[in-house]
């Protein structure tokens, strides 16, 4: 008798079902690229609260969770809406003092992930003479160095309970392929206790093997994989669709007032329980425009 390989393919809702209140949740991607939005929307519907967010440089993924009242703290390496302004809910919560912000920089974030990946109590990084250790002594601690030696800080391990990532394709066993830059996603996956990845399409194992240089996350590093077409929307997914600038503007405008944001959440999150329902609300015409390559746009 031969054993079958284990499929890691699960539904969106199942993928986030066991995220507990108070969990540390890593969020992958980079600003308007590969934010794990279908998973984030499912997590908002699931209702887990008092989350400690650990976002890579991001935009709407942390901002939506903060706006929906799900986060008690967030690491901030960079949270921005770039050409659309500041991240509306993150900004408001930080200015009101209603969220704890663990201020970090790229070296501190990378060092913290490496410490977790390597099972080290801390990782040294250069002391770059910023104000970060003053406002975040829990993450940055001066290390003793001899006179004349380079000054160093110890950064604490960053080890999320679960991380949510979005990539372009995977097989059902969880071999995940990136058609663009993986940003911090591979480090975040290695540092996290549980790794959940949405992909725009599930492909066959033969397709994975044919271009195996694209597999940045082999299945040994992945716990669950979800097929969520346009799962990064309104952010971009490399080589498949571009960011939806109109929707990002709509989000920012809706976020100006509580009633506007309530309506946004009802329309796009709580009232759109399946990924297909969400995509229907965005509209097929709009989605097809996003799938057009920039190279072909005049």
């Amino acid at each position: 008798m031969t054993m079958a390989r284990t499929s890691k393919l699960v539904s969106l809702e199942d993928a986030v079902a066991d995220v507990k209140d108070g969990a540390a949740v890593g969020l992958g991607g980079w600003i308007f690229h590969s934010q794990p939005m279908a998973l984030v929307r499912a997590l908002v519907r699931q209702g887990a609260k008092d989350l400690d967010l650990v976002p890579s440089p991001g935009s709407i993924a942390p901002d939506l969770l903060i706006g929906a009242g799900r986060a008690r703290s967030t690491v901030c390496v960079f949270i921005s809406f770039e050409q659309h302004g500041l991240a509306p809910h993150f900004r408001r919560a930080a200015e009101r003092g209603s969220i704890q912000v663990h201020e970090m920089d790229g070296p501190g974030y990378a060092g913290g992930l490496r410490a977790a990946i390597c099972d080290l109590p801390w990782m040294p990084i250069p002391d770059l003479a910023t104000d970060l250790p003053k406002v975040n002594p829990a993450h940055y601690r001066p290390l003793p160095t001899a006179p004349g030696e380079r000054r160093l800080l110890a950064v604490q391990p960053i080890r999320p309970d679960v991380c949510l990532l979005h990539a372009q394709q995977a097989d059902e066993f969880g071999n995940v392929q990136f058609l663009g830059a993986p940003f911090f996603d591979v480090m975040l996956a290695q540092a996290s206790r549980r790794v959940v990845v949405s992909v725009d399409r599930i492909v066959s194992p033969e397709t994975i093997r044919r271009s195996n240089h694209l597999t940045k996350l082999p299945y040994a590093l992945v716990d669950a994989v979800v097929e969520a077409p346009f799962g990064a929307h309104p952010t971009a997914s490399a080589a498949i669709y571009r960011a939806d600038e109109a929707h990002l503007r709509e989000y920012v405008e809706a976020s100006a007032k509580p009633e506007g944001f309530g309506a946004y959440l009802e329309r796009y999150v709580s009232g759109a329980g399946e990924n297909s329902a969400y995509l229907d609300r965005i509209g097929g015409g709009r989605l097809s425009e996003l799938a057009v390559s920039e190279s072909n746009v005049a």
């Binding site: 960079f78 949270i79 921005s80 200015e95 003092g97 790229g106 770059l128």
Partner: peptide, 20 residues
Amino acid sequence: HARPKLRGPGTVGISALTAL
């Protein structure tokens, strides 16, 4: 920092690029 008048996006790589 605890109660900012304006909350900006954050540091990302600026610390390393300006320092190194």
